[in-house]
Computed example of a mutant assay.
Amino acid sequence: MKFYYQLTPALIGVTIALVQTKVAMALSPTEVNNIAKQITVLIQSKKPRYGSGVIIKKEGNTYTVLTAAHVVEVQDNYEIITPDGQRYALNYSSVKPMPGVDLAVAQFTSSQNYNLAKIGNSDSSTEGTAAYVAGFPAPTFAINQSVYTFSNGTITANASKPLRDGYALVYSNNTSEGMSGGAVLNEKGELIAVHGRADLDTKEIKTGFNLGIPINTFLRLSAKTGVDVGVSAPNTPVATAPKADDFFIQAGEKYQKRDYKGAIADYTSALKINPNFALAYNNRGLTHSVLGD
């Protein structure tokens, strides 16, 4: 098992997450929340636009934040609000979108010490394992400011063939607009994905089919784009045949596009591979009910 921890090289002044073999025990939701609260930031523009991000690196007084690219896609005067409530100007010239996926990094400068995310192995996050999402929902009529939110859930699929923009991890947590770019953590408090997409119900609450981009996707791209966080993606064997998770995530995408018959076909394909995929049974039944079957 890989265990990721922080190290501050005294000579070069860079703090990054490095890898060491060690057994890591599962943490309680409260313990994971304490970790998430210290690494998750609010990203706010003057327009205003709201999003979230995760602190992943420190070099000198420069911090690097990982977020969803759509959070910072419009050039504007953004601020990063850190866990201690301090506001820092986001250096927009530092924004680097990752090619082909909905991820970007950005930087801010501070002399304060902030915690960094521990990088996990997203390939190890399988159906039924714990997932926690942290972020800052946008203000609503009821709550007129963006307040840190932490949501419990479970992984429902981890596809080997991602959807458009790199989304491949599916989880059941309830999330809201503004939490895009926030951390998705495992039961050890490690960063396994960046949150970015989900459905909306009539109350504008994202629920059920939540999507994140696996952290291993970022690690594979970061080396190519000059964003060094000191961690390499594991050498996971490439799937040679479709997984049940691949059909499940495609079904969810088709359901969102109201291609209900296509969704049913994909749920059925997922169940042929994994007859014990309970959520695929449930969602196929719900889709049949939408069609009036």
Score class of each variant (00 low, 15 high):
residue 47 K to H: 11
residue 60 G to I: 07
residue 51 G to F: 07
residue 84 D to F: 02
residue 57 K to V: 10
residue 48 P to C: 05
residue 67 T to P: 07
residue 40 T to M: 11
residue 44 Q to I: 13
residue 63 Y to K: 10
residue 82 T to W: 08
residue 48 P to R: 09
residue 72 V to H: 06
residue 53 G to L: 04
residue 55 I to Q: 04
residue 62 T to P: 01
residue 61 N to C: 08
residue 75 Q to L: 14
residue 49 R to K: 13
residue 82 T to Q: 01
residue 82 T to I: 08
residue 62 T to A: 11
residue 83 P to D: 02
residue 41 V to Q: 03
residue 69 A to M: 10
residue 62 T to Y: 07
residue 66 L to K: 07
residue 39 I to G: 10
residue 69 A to K: 13
residue 52 S to C: 08
residue 65 V to D: 11
residue 43 I to K: 06
residue 84 D to Q: 05
residue 79 E to K: 15
residue 55 I to E: 03
residue 52 S to K: 01
residue 72 V to D: 11
residue 68 A to S: 14
residue 77 N to E: 15
residue 74 V to T: 14
residue 69 A to R: 14
residue 65 V to P: 05
residue 84 D to T: 13
residue 42 L to F: 05
residue 67 T to H: 03
residue 52 S to H: 04
residue 64 T to D: 09
residue 67 T to K: 08
residue 79 E to Y: 09
residue 49 R to E: 13
residue 56 I to R: 03
residue 59 E to D: 14
residue 64 T to R: 11
residue 64 T to E: 10
residue 40 T to Q: 06
residue 69 A to N: 14
residue 77 N to V: 12
residue 55 I to Y: 01
residue 53 G to Y: 04
residue 47 K to V: 13
residue 44 Q to C: 05
residue 74 V to W: 02
residue 82 T to C: 04
residue 48 P to N: 09
residue 73 E to F: 12
residue 39 I to L: 12
residue 82 T to F: 03
residue 59 E to M: 13
residue 49 R to W: 11
residue 63 Y to I: 12
residue 81 I to C: 00
residue 45 S to T: 09
residue 79 E to L: 14
residue 45 S to P: 00
residue 47 K to F: 11
residue 55 I to L: 12
residue 60 G to A: 11
residue 49 R to L: 13
residue 57 K to W: 02
residue 68 A to Y: 07
residue 43 I to N: 04
